[in-house]
Design a protein around this nucleic acid. Structure first.
Length: 896
RNA sequence: GCCGAAGUGGCGGAAUGGCAGACGCGCCGGACUCAAAAUCCGGUCCACGCAAGUGGGUGUGGGUUCAAGUCCCACCUUCGGCACCA
């Protein structure tokens, strides 16, 4: 096989690496460690997508590079294998999800192995494996066993939760209930997103525009008793600790927005006309400085005080509105938000700052789940309140003076606003606070309210507690038993399983279909559900955990995947953590990363991990789009049929027809999906890897191009021919390869290339690293004798990118061992420098001449040479030189 | 609407404030070949010109600077995220 034949080379080296366990990472080595992690895939039935190898190749290159730099590299792969699609498929075909899942994993493993990634396959994890589930359940029990000590800002064992004496006085059951209310994992009756088509409840995050994220099925709201994780307790730390992480500003911002911290005040509005016993209405506001402008209040329709305050005359209208709101999904609530709706309750409240009576309304633009579920409405300074006030003819009172140009621009006057002014300003019409700027007002009014017991400073978050249960079969069972009384009814008390009881595996069931009701399929496994323990009867929890559970800690299991005594050995955890580089798609920017960070912090508080954050550096690879398409309406054209005229593409045949030229997201329906199997079949894994890295910056969205793959394939062919005799029948070195000293320029270019590739690897600029190697290859191609001392380091440079061809060449160059642990080539800075350089000479910033001068030329010599140049002299003669800029060894600019 | 990222040849893209377009694709020409493919060599931002050359050019308009794709201000477009969060 004398010509480059990846099909012959690649499987052989993959076998070699497998057999020799070349990439096995020793547990605890003296070497510095480097933990480089990919977001593990969900093994879907569709097989690997070209998007997967993009991130995997990037991390693989760095893993191989770091090994050569002497690091102990941890580079693992596994399967996020619980999840809806496998179960959906199972329901449709009657196949057990375990069967489908294992089949899909086998496909994914084959495809990933065919790309030659240097994973330590001994560390492979599968979230559905009972030995993995065991520890997912164990971690859940740790969360269950933890309460959040707000004072010390950390999670602590539930046994350390202070029990108020009045609770203790009520006895053992009361204490347990009190504890259960404070656990980080707790059960609550919550309005959930019930999806009838999927037969499950979905997390808020799994609902997009009122439809299920998977499948786009409609979702309705209904109250249900569910498991919740108290992620909100960690909101502040999740926010603060972002600071020190080496993540892209975009992702950090997305997480910050999701957490949605806002600072303000809670203020109590007393009910008018009420006796001393009537409760006050508490609102949250970020603008306590606008209290004097509050002209009405709004409660969420679900607010618990609504029935109590509604006057008889308004009851019918209020009840009707509440019922209507309850039926509406979130989608309908927002979609119909063009015009605001609401109903007056008939009740009035007293504005605490001025004693004014203001009406209390209910409206669905106020959400029961945020803040206190009630607001004070300041229509002059809040867009939503302004719109509502207009709708219902409520008074609008300006209490912050807008800037004059804003008034002019909007056509407003101080008394007649045409829209709400939401900016800062100086207070007007605000009693004793009139004249204060917004920030100062906020401070003073908050203190004023606190003194009088009317309010206090308050921080609120958009982040909600995490709905953690699903009504599905294919997930981790909760390791929880519900206590039954003598009548077989649940008492509400729970008993966690112990480590010895784990893993609690799924019962084998003939029928794992959803029940069609919010009753989980596991409830049908009667034998499994009913348990007697220590003479007491229990029922197992029949919900299962969501897919996120397994992915919240898999990066820890890789450290010690076969340990059956602990989820990870503490010494190994200390050695490897944190993850030095985590690469994956931006679709996980918020949820997976936030959930994993939350679990990690709980484990950290409980002393099981040593770092407060799991992922030190995070990089999101960009999306790979399909090939460029030229379309007019639905009609597609080829590149040859169109041309560019000015800024747009038109048909060659009819230039009046404008052609849409762009690349689209790959999708089955569009028919533009690229299959990695085919690419590897045709060009080999090395070309696939190289192309995905050469397309452009890792983080950019970029279109696929088969011609581009061909381009890098040709490059590898050129590299091959640099060293291999193509005409020979046997694999042997070309005659041009000789043990001679390289010429000066070749040596310089070699060192320059080492420098460029090394620097680019450090900054993950893979595309330019490849360009540098291409340039060097072009130089070597022109040489008739090619020194071995140049080719060998070059092969090492190439090896992280295209490992199969590099191993093959390395072996042919006479090395019997894999190059995986060869030292990375070093460059000599002295050799990188050229002897002479070309320096442009500008006159008034325009290049007019070029000088070839010694690289280390002194400024004054360069200046003289520039002025003396034949092209420059006539341009400057007789003119006054106003300024002369000399950039050392780089450029001369003469300003006249 | 708000937040974030990005706009450079026919295409993907490259450029610590210092020669815009590296590298690759495509295209044009040449060599090799009976021929083709493959390969190798050369050319390829646009306009004018036989040429030497001249002028223009990094989404638009301004600004800072000896010098701006790069820095500042305003705007336009595309992509991604959030979206009644008080």
């Amino acid at each position: 096989m004398p010509s480059y034949n990846p099909k012959a080379i690649e499987p052989r080296w993959q076998d070699y690496w497998d057999k020799h366990k070349t990439f096995r990472a020793p547990d605890l080595a003296d070497k510095p460690k480097f933990y480089v992690l990919d977001m593990f895939p969900y093994p879907s039935g569709a097989g690997l997508h070209v998007g997967h190898p993009e991130g995997y190749t990037a991390t693989d290159i760095l893993a191989r590079y770091r090994r050569m730099r002497g690091y102990n590299v941890l580079h693992p792969m596994g399967w996020d294998a619980f999840g809806l699609p496998a179960e959906q498929y199972a329901i449709e075909t009657g196949t057990h999800p375990r069967v489908t899942t294992q089949k899909n994993i086998a496909t994914f493993r084959r495809q990933i192995k065919m790309l030659g990634f240097s994973y330590d396959w001994d560390r492979e994890v599968d979230t559905t494996d009972p030995s993995y589930v065991k520890w997912t359940q164990w971690i859940f029990l740790q969360i269950f066993d933890t309460w959040y000590d707000a004072e010390h800002k950390r999670g602590r064992p539930i046994a350390e939760l202070p029990i108020p004496p009045e609770v203790r006085a009520q006895g053992e059951a009361a204490v347990r209930r009190y504890q259960d209310q404070h656990r980080l994992a707790y059960m609550a009756e919550v309005p959930v997103n019930w999806c009838p088509a999927l037969g499950t409840v979905l997390a808020n995050e799994e609902v997009v525009d009122g439809k299920s994220e998977r499948g786009g099925h409609p979702v309705v709201r209904m109250p249900l008793r569910q498991w919740m994780l108290r992620i909100t307790a960690y909101a502040e730390r999740l926010l603060e600790d972002l600071e020190a992480l080496d993540w892209s500003p975009a992702i950090k911002e997305m997480q910050r927005n999701w957490i949605g911290r806002s600072e303000g005040a809670e203020v109590d509005f007393a009910l008018a006309d009420g006796g001393p016993g009537r409760p006050a209405i508490r609102v949250f506001t970020t603008r306590p400085d606008t209290l004097f402008g509050a002209t009405y209040m709004v409660l969420a329709p679900e607010h618990p005080l609504v029935p109590a305050i509604t006057t008889p005359g308004q009851r019918a209208a209020v009840d009707a509105y509440r019922e209507q709101a309850a039926r509406k999904s979130d989608l309908e609530r927002t979609e119909l938000s063009k015009t605001k709706t609401g109903v007056f309750t008939g009740a009035f409240a007293i504005n605490p700052v001025n004693g004014e009576r203001i009406p209390i309304w209910i409206a669905d633009y106020v959400l029961v789940s945020y803040g206190t579920g009630a607001i004070m409405a300041v229509p002059a300074h809040d867009e939503r309140d302004f719109e509502f006030a207009r709708q219902f003819g409520l008074p609008i009172r300006t209490v912050v003076r807008p800037p004059d140009d804003w008034l002019a621009q909007t056509g407003s006057t101080l008394d007649q606003l045409t829209e709400a002014y939401c900016g800062d300003g100086v207070a007007v019409d605000s009693g004793p606070f009139t004249g204060l700027p917004t920030a100062e007002f906020k401070k003073q009014i908050t203190a004023w309210l606190e003194e009088r017991g009317l309010g206090q400073r308050k921080i609120n978050y958009k982040l909600r507690d995490w709905l953690f249960s699903r009504q599905r079969y294919w997930g981790e069972p909760f390791p929880i038993l519900h206590e039954l009384d003598e009548h077989g009814q649940r008492t509400g008390l729970m008993r966690p399983l112990t480590l010895a009881d784990l893993p609690l595996t799924l019962p084998e069931m003939e029928d794992f279909k959803p029940t069609g009701k919010p009753e989980p399929p596991l409830s049908k496994a009667v034998d499994w559900v009913n348990v007697t323990l220590d003479g007491k009867r229990y029922q197992r929890e029949t919900n299962t955990m969501p897919q996120w559970a397994g992915s919240c800690w898999y990066y820890l299991r890789y450290l010690d995947p076969h340990n059956d005594q602990a989820f990870v050995d503490p010494a190994k955890e200390r050695y490897w953590m944190p993850v030095d580089l985590y690469v994956g798609g931006a679709e996980h920017a918020v949820l997976h990363l936030l959930y994993a960070r939350f679990w990690h912090k709980v484990l950290y508080d409980r002393g099981y991990v040593s770092t407060p954050e799991p992922f030190q550096k995070l990089v999101n690879q960009g999306m790979i789009l399909g090939e460029m398409e030229f379309t007019v309406g639905d009609r597609r054209y080829t590149e040859d049929e169109v041309e560019k005229r000015g800024d747009v593409f038109v048909l060659k045949a009819d230039p009046t027809v404008r052609v849409e030229a762009r690349a689209y997201k790959m999708s089955k329906s569009r028919g533009n999906v690229i299959n990695p199997d085919q690419v590897v079949e045709e060009y080999g894994a090395d070309s696939m890897r190289l192309y995905e890295m050469f397309m452009g910056p890792l983080e950019a969205t970029k279109p696929w191009s088969m011609r581009g793959v061909e381009g890098v394939y040709r490059f590898l062919g050129r590299v091959w021919r640099l060293m291999i005799d193509e005409r020979a029948d046997e694999l042997r070195l070309a005659d041009a390869v000789q043990d001679v000293e390289p010429d000066r320029e070749t040596l310089r270019l070699l060192h320059r290339t080492i420098q460029r590739v090394t620097d680019d690897l450090e900054t993950m600029s893979f595309n330019t690293a490849i360009a540098a190697m291409m340039e060097f290859t072009n130089h070597l191609t022109r040489l008739t004798t090619r020194p071995r001392s140049v080719l060998e380091p070059f092969v090492l440079l190439l090896s992280p990118f295209a490992p199969h061809i590099a191993e093959e060449l390395w072996q042919t160059l006479g090395h019997p061992q894999s190059l995986a642990y060869e030292p990375w080539p070093a460059y000599d800075p002295a050799l990188v420098k050229a002897d002479t350089v070309e320096v442009p000479v500008q006159v008034n910033g325009k290049v007019k001449a070029r000088l070839t001068v010694p690289a280390d030329i002194e400024d004054h010599a360069l200046q003289e040479a520039a002025l003396a140049d034949v092209k420059i002299r006539p341009l400057v003669e007789g003119k006054t030189i106003r300024k002369l800029v000399v950039v050392k060894g780089k450029l001369v600019n003469i300003v006249i």
